[in-house]
Write a protein that binds this DNA or RNA. Structure first.
Length: 485
RNA sequence: GCUCCCAUCGACUAGUGGUUAGGUCAUCACUCUUUCACAGUGAAGACACGGGUUCGAAUCCCGUUGGGAGCGCCA
Protein backbone atom coordinates (compact mmCIF):
# COMPACT_ATOMS: atom_id res chain seq x y z
CA UNK A 1 0.00 0.00 0.00
CA UNK A 2 1.08 3.54 -0.59
CA UNK A 3 2.49 5.61 2.23
CA UNK A 4 0.66 8.22 4.29
CA UNK A 5 -2.74 6.64 4.07
CA UNK A 6 -5.44 8.99 5.29
CA UNK A 7 -9.12 8.14 5.51
CA UNK A 8 -12.04 9.93 7.02
CA UNK A 9 -15.34 9.33 8.70
CA UNK A 10 -17.60 12.24 7.85
CA UNK A 11 -20.96 12.11 9.57
CA UNK A 12 -23.48 14.90 9.60
CA UNK A 13 -24.69 15.81 13.06
CA UNK A 14 -28.36 15.04 12.59
CA UNK A 15 -28.85 12.69 15.53
CA UNK A 16 -27.47 9.48 16.93
CA UNK A 17 -25.02 7.43 14.91
CA UNK A 18 -26.78 5.00 12.62
CA UNK A 19 -25.55 1.44 12.85
CA UNK A 20 -24.68 1.49 9.14
CA UNK A 21 -22.56 4.58 9.66
CA UNK A 22 -20.85 2.92 12.56
CA UNK A 23 -19.82 0.12 10.24
CA UNK A 24 -18.46 2.68 7.78
CA UNK A 25 -16.53 4.33 10.60
CA UNK A 26 -15.25 0.95 11.73
CA UNK A 27 -13.98 -0.08 8.30
CA UNK A 28 -12.26 3.27 7.90
CA UNK A 29 -10.67 2.84 11.30
CA UNK A 30 -9.58 -0.74 10.65
CA UNK A 31 -8.18 0.20 7.27
CA UNK A 32 -6.26 3.15 8.71
CA UNK A 33 -4.80 1.21 11.62
CA UNK A 34 -3.95 -1.82 9.51
CA UNK A 35 -1.95 0.39 7.17
CA UNK A 36 -0.46 2.71 9.77
CA UNK A 37 -2.58 5.49 8.38
CA UNK A 38 -4.69 8.20 9.94
CA UNK A 39 -8.40 8.43 10.56
CA UNK A 40 -9.89 11.90 10.34
CA UNK A 41 -13.25 12.77 11.84
CA UNK A 42 -14.94 15.54 9.92
CA UNK A 43 -18.31 16.97 10.82
CA UNK A 44 -20.42 17.67 7.75
CA UNK A 45 -22.75 20.27 9.18
CA UNK A 46 -23.64 22.20 6.05
CA UNK A 47 -27.37 21.80 6.43
CA UNK A 48 -28.37 24.23 9.12
CA UNK A 49 -31.97 23.08 9.11
CA UNK A 50 -31.09 19.52 10.04
CA UNK A 51 -28.65 20.33 12.81
CA UNK A 52 -29.38 18.55 16.07
CA UNK A 53 -28.23 19.73 19.47
CA UNK A 54 -25.56 17.58 21.10
CA UNK A 55 -25.21 15.40 18.03
CA UNK A 56 -21.48 16.01 17.73
CA UNK A 57 -20.94 15.11 21.37
CA UNK A 58 -22.93 11.96 20.84
CA UNK A 59 -20.88 11.00 17.80
CA UNK A 60 -17.66 11.41 19.73
CA UNK A 61 -19.00 9.57 22.78
CA UNK A 62 -20.26 6.70 20.65
CA UNK A 63 -16.96 6.31 18.84
CA UNK A 64 -15.21 6.26 22.16
CA UNK A 65 -17.65 3.73 23.58
CA UNK A 66 -16.98 1.24 20.80
CA UNK A 67 -13.26 1.92 20.78
CA UNK A 68 -12.81 3.71 17.46
CA UNK A 69 -10.14 6.37 17.92
CA UNK A 70 -9.68 9.12 15.41
CA UNK A 71 -6.37 10.86 14.87
CA UNK A 72 -7.61 14.26 13.79
CA UNK A 73 -10.95 15.94 14.26
CA UNK A 74 -12.97 18.01 16.69
CA UNK A 75 -11.10 18.49 19.97
CA UNK A 76 -8.10 16.80 18.41
CA UNK A 77 -6.92 19.41 15.97
CA UNK A 78 -4.36 18.37 13.42
CA UNK A 79 -2.77 20.22 10.53
CA UNK A 80 -5.98 20.54 8.59
CA UNK A 81 -8.30 22.18 11.09
CA UNK A 82 -11.04 23.19 11.38
CA UNK A 83 -12.88 19.90 11.09
CA UNK A 84 -16.36 21.37 11.09
CA UNK A 85 -17.51 22.23 7.61
CA UNK A 86 -19.58 25.10 8.93
CA UNK A 87 -16.28 26.72 9.90
CA UNK A 88 -14.83 26.35 6.42
CA UNK A 89 -17.38 28.30 4.42
CA UNK A 90 -14.87 30.78 3.02
CA UNK A 91 -12.73 27.98 1.64
CA UNK A 92 -15.60 26.49 -0.31
CA UNK A 93 -16.58 29.83 -1.70
CA UNK A 94 -13.06 30.52 -2.88
CA UNK A 95 -12.91 27.25 -4.72
CA UNK A 96 -16.36 27.75 -6.21
CA UNK A 97 -15.12 31.06 -7.55
CA UNK A 98 -12.23 29.30 -9.27
CA UNK A 99 -14.71 27.00 -10.92
CA UNK A 100 -16.72 29.95 -12.16
CA UNK A 101 -13.65 31.62 -13.58
CA UNK A 102 -12.78 28.44 -15.43
CA UNK A 103 -16.35 28.14 -16.72
CA UNK A 104 -16.76 24.84 -14.92
CA UNK A 105 -19.52 26.34 -12.84
CA UNK A 106 -21.99 29.18 -13.20
CA UNK A 107 -24.35 31.42 -11.28
CA UNK A 108 -27.99 30.47 -11.38
CA UNK A 109 -30.73 32.87 -10.39
CA UNK A 110 -33.71 30.67 -11.14
CA UNK A 111 -36.42 30.71 -8.52
CA UNK A 112 -37.71 27.69 -6.72
CA UNK A 113 -41.01 28.11 -8.56
CA UNK A 114 -39.34 27.92 -11.93
CA UNK A 115 -37.33 24.89 -10.89
CA UNK A 116 -40.48 23.16 -9.71
CA UNK A 117 -42.22 24.05 -12.93
CA UNK A 118 -39.42 22.54 -14.99
CA UNK A 119 -39.51 19.41 -12.91
CA UNK A 120 -43.27 19.06 -13.26
CA UNK A 121 -43.18 19.66 -16.96
CA UNK A 122 -40.44 17.07 -17.41
CA UNK A 123 -42.38 14.58 -15.36
CA UNK A 124 -45.40 15.14 -17.53
CA UNK A 125 -43.35 14.50 -20.64
CA UNK A 126 -41.91 11.42 -18.95
CA UNK A 127 -38.39 12.54 -19.61
CA UNK A 128 -36.09 9.76 -18.37
CA UNK A 129 -33.88 12.07 -16.33
CA UNK A 130 -35.19 15.28 -14.88
CA UNK A 131 -32.51 17.95 -15.06
CA UNK A 132 -32.04 21.67 -14.82
CA UNK A 133 -32.32 23.26 -18.28
CA UNK A 134 -29.09 25.32 -18.05
CA UNK A 135 -31.00 28.53 -18.65
CA UNK A 136 -28.67 30.66 -16.54
CA UNK A 137 -25.63 29.33 -18.36
CA UNK A 138 -26.47 31.68 -21.22
CA UNK A 139 -26.59 34.78 -19.06
CA UNK A 140 -24.19 37.48 -20.21
CA UNK A 141 -21.45 38.86 -17.97
CA UNK A 142 -23.48 42.06 -17.73
CA UNK A 143 -26.67 40.30 -16.69
CA UNK A 144 -24.82 38.32 -14.06
CA UNK A 145 -23.16 41.34 -12.49
CA UNK A 146 -26.45 43.25 -12.57
CA UNK A 147 -28.19 40.41 -10.80
CA UNK A 148 -25.42 40.18 -8.25
CA UNK A 149 -25.52 43.92 -7.65
CA UNK A 150 -29.24 43.74 -7.13
CA UNK A 151 -28.52 41.07 -4.52
CA UNK A 152 -30.80 38.56 -6.20
CA UNK A 153 -30.57 35.20 -4.50
CA UNK A 154 -28.44 32.75 -6.43
CA UNK A 155 -26.84 29.35 -6.34
CA UNK A 156 -23.69 28.13 -8.04
CA UNK A 157 -24.10 25.14 -10.30
CA UNK A 158 -21.67 22.71 -11.81
CA UNK A 159 -21.60 22.93 -15.60
CA UNK A 160 -21.85 19.32 -16.71
CA UNK A 161 -20.74 18.79 -20.28
CA UNK A 162 -23.04 16.34 -22.05
CA UNK A 163 -21.88 13.47 -24.22
CA UNK A 164 -19.09 12.21 -22.03
CA UNK A 165 -18.56 8.87 -20.38
CA UNK A 166 -17.25 9.14 -16.87
CA UNK A 167 -15.27 6.14 -15.80
CA UNK A 168 -13.77 5.31 -12.47
CA UNK A 169 -12.38 2.35 -10.72
CA UNK A 170 -14.05 1.44 -7.49
CA UNK A 171 -11.81 -0.57 -5.19
CA UNK A 172 -14.61 -2.90 -4.28
CA UNK A 173 -16.72 -2.95 -7.42
CA UNK A 174 -14.21 -2.51 -10.17
CA UNK A 175 -14.80 -0.27 -13.17
CA UNK A 176 -17.98 1.76 -13.09
CA UNK A 177 -19.05 4.08 -15.85
CA UNK A 178 -21.86 6.48 -16.44
CA UNK A 179 -22.88 8.89 -19.19
CA UNK A 180 -22.57 12.56 -18.26
CA UNK A 181 -25.92 13.28 -19.94
CA UNK A 182 -27.58 11.71 -16.95
CA UNK A 183 -25.98 14.06 -14.47
CA UNK A 184 -27.77 17.20 -13.42
CA UNK A 185 -26.01 20.54 -13.13
CA UNK A 186 -25.48 19.94 -9.49
CA UNK A 187 -25.82 22.84 -7.06
CA UNK A 188 -22.49 23.51 -5.44
CA UNK A 189 -23.24 26.55 -3.32
CA UNK A 190 -26.73 26.99 -1.91
CA UNK A 191 -28.50 30.31 -1.76
CA UNK A 192 -27.70 30.58 1.94
CA UNK A 193 -24.02 30.57 1.02
CA UNK A 194 -23.41 27.09 2.37
CA UNK A 195 -21.88 24.47 0.12
CA UNK A 196 -23.71 21.28 -0.72
CA UNK A 197 -22.27 17.92 0.28
CA UNK A 198 -20.74 17.34 -3.11
CA UNK A 199 -18.61 20.46 -3.15
CA UNK A 200 -17.59 20.54 0.48
CA UNK A 201 -16.79 16.86 0.48
CA UNK A 202 -14.52 16.98 -2.53
CA UNK A 203 -12.70 20.10 -1.41
CA UNK A 204 -12.13 18.82 2.10
CA UNK A 205 -11.02 15.43 0.98
CA UNK A 206 -8.49 17.13 -1.22
CA UNK A 207 -7.31 19.67 1.33
CA UNK A 208 -7.16 17.08 4.08
CA UNK A 209 -5.14 14.80 1.82
CA UNK A 210 -7.56 11.92 2.02
CA UNK A 211 -6.20 9.00 0.03
CA UNK A 212 -9.08 6.54 0.27
CA UNK A 213 -12.75 7.39 0.34
CA UNK A 214 -14.47 4.51 2.05
CA UNK A 215 -18.20 5.13 2.30
CA UNK A 216 -21.59 3.48 1.86
CA UNK A 217 -22.90 2.26 -1.45
CA UNK A 218 -25.60 4.93 -1.45
CA UNK A 219 -22.87 7.29 -2.64
CA UNK A 220 -21.96 5.28 -5.68
CA UNK A 221 -24.41 7.07 -7.99
CA UNK A 222 -23.08 10.49 -7.04
CA UNK A 223 -19.44 9.58 -7.41
CA UNK A 224 -19.36 10.71 -11.07
CA UNK A 225 -20.34 14.19 -9.88
CA UNK A 226 -17.40 14.15 -7.54
CA UNK A 227 -15.09 12.93 -10.27
CA UNK A 228 -16.22 15.82 -12.44
CA UNK A 229 -15.28 18.17 -9.63
CA UNK A 230 -11.85 16.62 -9.18
CA UNK A 231 -11.35 17.03 -12.91
CA UNK A 232 -12.56 20.59 -12.92
CA UNK A 233 -10.04 21.46 -10.24
CA UNK A 234 -7.35 19.39 -11.89
CA UNK A 235 -6.87 17.26 -8.80
CA UNK A 236 -5.71 13.69 -8.64
CA UNK A 237 -8.43 11.20 -7.76
CA UNK A 238 -8.39 9.42 -4.44
CA UNK A 239 -9.26 5.73 -4.28
CA UNK A 240 -13.00 5.14 -4.01
CA UNK A 241 -14.33 2.15 -2.13
CA UNK A 242 -18.09 1.79 -1.82
CA UNK A 243 -19.20 -0.46 0.99
CA UNK A 244 -22.19 -2.75 0.66
CA UNK A 245 -25.30 -1.63 2.49
CA UNK A 246 -26.67 -2.93 5.76
CA UNK A 247 -30.17 -4.19 5.17
CA UNK A 248 -33.51 -4.71 6.91
CA UNK A 249 -35.02 -8.19 7.03
CA UNK A 250 -36.84 -7.42 3.75
CA UNK A 251 -33.53 -6.43 2.11
CA UNK A 252 -34.26 -2.72 1.94
CA UNK A 253 -31.69 -0.28 3.30
CA UNK A 254 -31.51 -0.51 7.09
CA UNK A 255 -34.03 1.97 8.40
CA UNK A 256 -35.72 3.12 11.52
CA UNK A 257 -39.13 1.97 10.38
CA UNK A 258 -38.16 -1.64 10.73
CA UNK A 259 -36.41 -1.64 14.08
CA UNK A 260 -33.65 0.02 15.99
CA UNK A 261 -30.90 1.56 13.93
CA UNK A 262 -29.00 3.85 16.24
CA UNK A 263 -25.98 2.68 18.16
CA UNK A 264 -27.56 4.35 21.16
CA UNK A 265 -30.49 1.92 20.98
CA UNK A 266 -28.21 -1.07 21.08
CA UNK A 267 -26.19 0.38 23.89
CA UNK A 268 -29.35 0.95 25.90
CA UNK A 269 -30.56 -2.54 25.23
CA UNK A 270 -27.47 -3.87 26.92
CA UNK A 271 -25.26 -4.88 24.05
CA UNK A 272 -21.56 -4.83 24.82
CA UNK A 273 -19.48 -2.65 22.50
CA UNK A 274 -17.12 -5.55 21.80
CA UNK A 275 -20.02 -7.71 20.63
CA UNK A 276 -21.48 -4.98 18.46
CA UNK A 277 -18.14 -4.26 16.80
CA UNK A 278 -17.41 -7.94 16.28
CA UNK A 279 -20.83 -8.47 14.75
CA UNK A 280 -20.81 -5.44 12.52
CA UNK A 281 -17.27 -6.14 11.29
CA UNK A 282 -18.45 -9.45 9.88
CA UNK A 283 -21.33 -7.87 7.99
CA UNK A 284 -19.74 -7.30 4.62
CA UNK A 285 -16.25 -8.47 5.39
CA UNK A 286 -14.70 -11.79 6.25
CA UNK A 287 -11.13 -12.77 7.10
CA UNK A 288 -11.62 -16.05 5.21
CA UNK A 289 -10.86 -18.29 8.10
CA UNK A 290 -13.22 -19.96 10.53
CA UNK A 291 -12.73 -17.68 13.48
CA UNK A 292 -15.89 -15.96 14.74
CA UNK A 293 -14.76 -13.97 17.75
CA UNK A 294 -12.42 -11.06 17.12
CA UNK A 295 -10.99 -8.39 19.37
CA UNK A 296 -10.49 -4.95 17.87
CA UNK A 297 -6.76 -5.65 17.58
CA UNK A 298 -7.39 -8.88 15.72
CA UNK A 299 -9.73 -7.04 13.37
CA UNK A 300 -7.08 -4.42 12.73
CA UNK A 301 -4.53 -7.09 12.04
CA UNK A 302 -6.74 -9.00 9.62
CA UNK A 303 -8.72 -6.29 7.88
CA UNK A 304 -8.19 -5.67 4.20
CA UNK A 305 -10.36 -3.79 1.75
CA UNK A 306 -9.86 -6.59 -0.76
CA UNK A 307 -11.93 -8.91 1.42
CA UNK A 308 -14.93 -6.59 1.58
CA UNK A 309 -18.00 -7.90 -0.22
CA UNK A 310 -20.09 -6.40 -2.92
CA UNK A 311 -23.54 -7.43 -1.79
CA UNK A 312 -25.55 -6.05 1.10
CA UNK A 313 -25.96 -7.86 4.40
CA UNK A 314 -29.06 -8.18 6.52
CA UNK A 315 -28.64 -6.88 10.04
CA UNK A 316 -30.06 -9.84 11.89
CA UNK A 317 -29.60 -9.65 15.66
CA UNK A 318 -29.77 -13.38 16.33
CA UNK A 319 -26.05 -13.76 15.91
CA UNK A 320 -25.41 -10.51 17.75
CA UNK A 321 -27.30 -11.93 20.72
CA UNK A 322 -25.15 -15.02 20.68
CA UNK A 323 -22.01 -12.89 20.51
CA UNK A 324 -23.17 -10.79 23.42
CA UNK A 325 -23.59 -13.91 25.53
CA UNK A 326 -20.17 -15.12 24.44
CA UNK A 327 -18.55 -11.86 25.44
CA UNK A 328 -20.29 -11.95 28.80
CA UNK A 329 -19.00 -15.46 29.41
CA UNK A 330 -15.50 -14.37 28.49
CA UNK A 331 -15.47 -11.58 31.02
CA UNK A 332 -14.07 -11.96 34.51
CA UNK A 333 -16.44 -11.84 37.47
CA UNK A 334 -14.91 -8.57 38.48
CA UNK A 335 -15.58 -6.97 35.09
CA UNK A 336 -19.11 -8.28 35.21
CA UNK A 337 -19.55 -6.92 38.71
CA UNK A 338 -18.84 -3.41 37.49
CA UNK A 339 -21.25 -3.80 34.59
CA UNK A 340 -23.90 -5.33 36.82
CA UNK A 341 -23.67 -2.46 39.30
CA UNK A 342 -24.14 -0.01 36.44
CA UNK A 343 -27.27 -1.81 35.30
CA UNK A 344 -28.51 -2.21 38.85
CA UNK A 345 -28.31 1.52 39.39
CA UNK A 346 -30.81 1.93 36.56
CA UNK A 347 -33.11 -0.76 37.95
CA UNK A 348 -35.66 -0.89 40.76
CA UNK A 349 -33.07 -2.53 42.99
CA UNK A 350 -30.72 -0.67 45.25
CA UNK A 351 -27.03 -1.26 44.71
CA UNK A 352 -26.30 -0.73 48.40
CA UNK A 353 -28.44 -3.69 49.39
CA UNK A 354 -25.98 -6.16 47.90
CA UNK A 355 -22.34 -6.71 48.74
CA UNK A 356 -19.72 -7.34 46.09
CA UNK A 357 -19.25 -10.80 47.51
CA UNK A 358 -22.93 -11.56 47.15
CA UNK A 359 -23.15 -10.22 43.61
CA UNK A 360 -20.13 -12.24 42.52
CA UNK A 361 -21.90 -15.38 43.67
CA UNK A 362 -25.00 -14.37 41.73
CA UNK A 363 -22.90 -13.59 38.67
CA UNK A 364 -21.27 -16.99 38.85
CA UNK A 365 -24.62 -18.68 39.00
CA UNK A 366 -26.22 -16.67 36.21
CA UNK A 367 -23.30 -16.17 33.83
CA UNK A 368 -23.87 -19.23 31.61
CA UNK A 369 -27.55 -18.54 31.13
CA UNK A 370 -27.77 -14.92 30.05
CA UNK A 371 -27.48 -12.87 26.89
CA UNK A 372 -27.61 -9.50 28.63
CA UNK A 373 -26.13 -8.29 31.92
CA UNK A 374 -29.50 -7.14 33.18
CA UNK A 375 -30.82 -10.66 32.89
CA UNK A 376 -28.75 -11.40 35.98
CA UNK A 377 -31.43 -9.66 38.02
CA UNK A 378 -34.31 -10.24 35.63
CA UNK A 379 -34.02 -13.97 35.18
CA UNK A 380 -32.35 -14.27 38.58
CA UNK A 381 -34.73 -11.93 40.38
CA UNK A 382 -35.04 -14.42 43.26
CA UNK A 383 -31.51 -13.45 44.23
CA UNK A 384 -32.68 -9.88 44.70
CA UNK A 385 -36.11 -10.25 46.22
CA UNK A 386 -38.39 -12.82 47.73
CA UNK A 387 -40.59 -14.40 45.07
CA UNK A 388 -44.22 -13.52 45.60
CA UNK A 389 -46.25 -14.93 42.78
CA UNK A 390 -46.31 -18.61 42.03
CA UNK A 391 -47.79 -20.43 39.10
CA UNK A 392 -51.13 -21.93 40.18
CA UNK A 393 -50.68 -25.16 38.30
CA UNK A 394 -47.31 -25.70 39.89
CA UNK A 395 -48.68 -25.00 43.36
CA UNK A 396 -51.40 -27.55 42.70
CA UNK A 397 -48.91 -30.07 41.46
CA UNK A 398 -46.97 -29.94 44.70
CA UNK A 399 -49.97 -29.59 47.03
CA UNK A 400 -49.88 -33.12 48.37
CA UNK A 401 -49.04 -34.33 51.83
CA UNK A 402 -46.07 -36.19 50.38
CA UNK A 403 -44.37 -33.03 49.18
CA UNK A 404 -45.16 -31.18 52.38
CA UNK A 405 -43.51 -34.00 54.27
CA UNK A 406 -40.46 -33.91 52.04
CA UNK A 407 -40.08 -30.20 52.51
CA UNK A 408 -40.61 -30.44 56.24
CA UNK A 409 -37.96 -33.11 56.48
CA UNK A 410 -35.59 -30.91 54.53
CA UNK A 411 -36.37 -27.98 56.79
CA UNK A 412 -35.73 -29.99 59.92
CA UNK A 413 -32.40 -31.23 58.60
CA UNK A 414 -31.06 -28.00 57.22
CA UNK A 415 -31.71 -26.28 60.53
CA UNK A 416 -29.24 -28.70 62.09
CA UNK A 417 -26.42 -27.61 59.87
CA UNK A 418 -24.38 -24.87 61.44
CA UNK A 419 -22.58 -23.43 58.46
CA UNK A 420 -23.71 -24.33 54.96
CA UNK A 421 -21.19 -25.72 52.51
CA UNK A 422 -21.72 -27.09 49.04
CA UNK A 423 -20.78 -30.53 50.28
CA UNK A 424 -23.23 -30.39 53.19
CA UNK A 425 -26.06 -29.39 50.92
CA UNK A 426 -25.35 -32.10 48.42
CA UNK A 427 -25.05 -34.70 51.15
CA UNK A 428 -28.29 -33.48 52.65
CA UNK A 429 -30.11 -34.04 49.38
CA UNK A 430 -28.66 -37.53 49.09
CA UNK A 431 -29.54 -38.30 52.66
CA UNK A 432 -33.18 -37.28 52.33
CA UNK A 433 -33.59 -39.00 49.00
CA UNK A 434 -32.25 -42.24 50.47
CA UNK A 435 -34.12 -41.89 53.71
CA UNK A 436 -37.52 -41.19 52.16
CA UNK A 437 -36.86 -43.44 49.17
CA UNK A 438 -37.88 -40.81 46.66
CA UNK A 439 -36.51 -39.59 43.36
CA UNK A 440 -34.03 -36.76 43.52
CA UNK A 441 -36.36 -34.58 41.47
CA UNK A 442 -39.13 -35.05 44.00
CA UNK A 443 -37.10 -33.18 46.53
CA UNK A 444 -35.34 -30.70 44.33
CA UNK A 445 -38.28 -29.51 42.30
CA UNK A 446 -40.49 -28.39 45.19
CA UNK A 447 -37.42 -26.96 46.86
CA UNK A 448 -36.53 -25.01 43.74
CA UNK A 449 -40.08 -23.80 43.42
CA UNK A 450 -40.19 -22.70 47.05
CA UNK A 451 -37.01 -20.73 46.78
CA UNK A 452 -37.14 -19.31 43.27
CA UNK A 453 -40.77 -19.69 42.14
CA UNK A 454 -39.51 -21.49 39.07
CA UNK A 455 -38.44 -24.95 38.01
CA UNK A 456 -35.56 -23.61 35.96
CA UNK A 457 -32.32 -21.92 36.81
CA UNK A 458 -28.97 -22.42 38.47
CA UNK A 459 -28.31 -25.46 40.60
CA UNK A 460 -30.37 -25.45 43.78
CA UNK A 461 -27.34 -25.77 46.01
CA UNK A 462 -25.81 -22.69 44.41
CA UNK A 463 -28.98 -20.74 45.00
CA UNK A 464 -29.22 -21.79 48.64
CA UNK A 465 -25.55 -21.17 49.19
CA UNK A 466 -25.95 -17.68 47.79
CA UNK A 467 -29.09 -16.50 49.54
CA UNK A 468 -28.13 -18.24 52.80
CA UNK A 469 -29.72 -20.50 55.36
CA UNK A 470 -32.02 -17.96 56.91
CA UNK A 471 -33.76 -16.89 53.73
CA UNK A 472 -33.94 -20.46 52.53
CA UNK A 473 -35.77 -21.56 55.66
CA UNK A 474 -38.03 -18.53 55.46
CA UNK A 475 -38.98 -19.20 51.86
CA UNK A 476 -39.61 -22.91 52.41
CA UNK A 477 -41.83 -22.14 55.40
CA UNK A 478 -43.82 -19.65 53.43
CA UNK A 479 -44.13 -22.08 50.56
CA UNK A 480 -45.41 -24.88 52.80
CA UNK A 481 -48.08 -22.51 54.06
CA UNK A 482 -49.08 -21.82 50.51
CA UNK A 483 -49.28 -25.53 49.74
CA UNK A 484 -51.49 -26.29 52.70
CA UNK A 485 -53.81 -23.34 52.31
C1' G B 1 -39.61 5.55 -15.34
C1' C B 2 -34.23 6.15 -15.96
C1' U B 3 -29.07 5.04 -14.35
C1' C B 4 -25.95 2.22 -11.55
C1' C B 5 -24.98 -1.89 -8.22
C1' C B 6 -25.81 -6.88 -6.51
C1' A B 7 -27.18 -12.49 -6.48
C1' U B 8 -24.17 -19.74 -2.22
C1' C B 9 -28.39 -22.95 3.41
C1' G B 10 -33.75 -18.88 7.11
C1' A B 11 -29.28 -15.12 8.50
C1' C B 12 -23.77 -14.01 8.17
C1' U B 13 -20.30 -16.22 5.05
C1' A B 14 -15.88 -19.89 2.85
C1' G B 15 -15.26 -21.15 -2.04
C1' U B 16 -11.89 -17.94 -7.64
C1' G B 17 -12.59 -24.47 -13.40
C1' G B 18 -12.37 -30.80 -10.78
C1' U B 19 -14.85 -30.25 -3.04
C1' U B 20 -19.42 -35.72 -0.31
C1' A B 21 -20.18 -27.21 -1.68
C1' G B 22 -17.01 -25.95 4.40
C1' G B 23 -17.90 -22.85 8.99
C1' U B 24 -20.87 -19.65 12.54
C1' C B 25 -25.90 -18.06 14.33
C1' A B 26 -30.86 -19.77 14.40
C1' U B 27 -33.78 -24.69 14.18
C1' C B 28 -34.18 -30.00 15.60
C1' A B 29 -32.25 -34.51 18.11
C1' C B 30 -28.94 -36.83 21.48
C1' U B 31 -25.24 -36.60 25.70
C1' C B 32 -24.28 -34.15 30.41
C1' U B 33 -27.81 -31.97 34.40
C1' U B 34 -32.94 -32.13 39.57
C1' U B 35 -34.25 -28.21 35.88
C1' C B 36 -32.91 -24.17 32.57
C1' A B 37 -28.58 -22.78 30.47
C1' C B 38 -23.34 -23.67 29.24
C1' A B 39 -20.49 -27.44 26.87
C1' G B 40 -20.11 -31.65 23.51
C1' U B 41 -21.97 -34.84 19.40
C1' G B 42 -25.09 -35.20 15.34
C1' A B 43 -29.21 -33.95 11.77
C1' A B 44 -31.78 -30.95 8.46
C1' G B 45 -30.82 -26.87 5.26
C1' A B 46 -27.99 -23.27 -0.33
C1' C B 47 -25.04 -22.39 -5.59
C1' A B 48 -32.17 -17.78 -8.68
C1' C B 49 -33.15 -19.48 -13.88
C1' G B 50 -31.73 -20.31 -19.12
C1' G B 51 -28.08 -20.47 -22.66
C1' G B 52 -23.09 -20.78 -23.99
C1' U B 53 -17.22 -21.60 -23.25
C1' U B 54 -14.86 -26.22 -21.45
C1' C B 55 -13.32 -33.04 -20.96
C1' G B 56 -15.37 -30.57 -16.59
C1' A B 57 -18.63 -25.00 -14.07
C1' A B 58 -21.14 -22.16 -7.70
C1' U B 59 -16.64 -20.33 -10.02
C1' C B 60 -15.65 -17.49 -16.90
C1' C B 61 -19.20 -15.02 -20.85
C1' C B 62 -24.25 -13.59 -22.43
C1' G B 63 -29.31 -13.17 -21.41
C1' U B 64 -33.64 -13.56 -18.14
C1' U B 65 -35.59 -13.04 -13.44
C1' G B 66 -35.28 -11.14 -8.69
C1' G B 67 -33.51 -7.62 -5.14
C1' G B 68 -31.30 -2.96 -3.81
C1' A B 69 -29.54 2.03 -4.20
C1' G B 70 -29.67 6.76 -6.45
C1' C B 71 -32.15 10.39 -9.38
C1' G B 72 -33.23 17.58 -3.78
C1' C B 73 -30.74 24.65 -2.56
C1' C B 74 -30.35 16.41 2.48
C1' A B 75 -26.16 14.30 3.50
Amino acid sequence: MQQNIRVRYAPSPTGFIHIGNLRTALYNYLFARHNNGKLILRIEDTDQSRKVEKAVENIIDTLQWVGIEYDEGPFKEGDYAPYFQSQRLKIYYQYAKILIENKKAYYCFCSEERLNAIRQEQQLRKVPVAKYDKKCLSLTEQEISDNLNQKLPYVIRLNVEPGRTIKFNDFIRGEVQILSDLIDDQILIKSDGFPTYHLANVIDDYLMKITHIIRGEEWLPSTPKHILLYEAFGWELPVFAHLPLLLNKDRSKLSKRQGDVSVEDYKNKGYLPEALINFIALLGWNPKDEQEIFSMNELIEKFTLEAVHKSGAIFDIEKLNWLNGEYIRKKSNFELLILLREELSKSKYNNNDYSDEYLIKVINAMKPRITFIKEIYEKGYFFFEEPESFDKDLINKFSTTQYTEILNTYLKEIKNIQELTKEDLENLIKYIVDELKIKKANLIQPLRLAISASLEGPSITDIILTIGKEKTIQRINKFIEKLTE
